[in-house]
Amino acid sequence: MKATPDTLTVSVWRGAESGGSFESFEVPNFESQTILDIVAWIQQNSDPTLTYRYACRVGMCGSCAMMVNGVPRWTCRTHVQKVVQDNRVEIAPLRNLPVIKDLATDMDPFFDKWIAAEGLHHPTKSRHDPIEQINPESAARVEAASGIECINCSVCYAACDTVANNPDYLGPAALQRAWTVYNDSKDAGRQQVLDAVSGVGGCHNCHSQGSCAVHCPNDLNPMKAIAGLKRATATSFFRKGSRT
């Protein structure tokens, strides 16, 4: 079927980790719709077996990221008009992650690396202690706050060429989380974080290409966070050396 101005031709990747191919669908070309809208339209009207993942539809949950015309994007906040080329759109599962089926990727490696980077809270107090007052203007808090809006969508992980070429690399999201935790005065695991990001897959593998910062849908800058970790680990390296 040839595309007319009333319809869009949408190529959707179908298959699993073992292999697959693009399948073409004709979708109504409404004036205002998102990439997630057209994926849902295909699943509801053309092929109910199409598998994809989403939850909130408002750019908060980080579930619906996919490759759109070869670029990682949050599909619920990506308007078709913004990315359509010659009345065509190509939609594929996120890069750098195993595919479960069709557009749904296995996010386990992504979240496992958050834990491996110590991107988790190490408490300084118990629930019986009074709540610590935090000065939002302090330099460390400003650094921590700069990465706090990450929604774990894995767009930066899919955009990163270093992740593509080095499966051990923890990736921009996990390292940005580690930098946030490192700068949190309520966190007791600063040295744990530095040790976790100094191993073979750590922050020192980053080539500062900046794809993470370019593609982050929330305009965060993981590359800057990774540069901060490189500085902090280098300082810690010399301090350790002077103690021995």
Binding site: N166, D168, S198, G199, V200, G202, H204, N205
Partner: peptide
Amino acid sequence: MMDIRLYMLQRI
């Protein structure tokens, strides 16, 4: 593959 030791050696 690039740990802190190799990173520091290369920078120094």
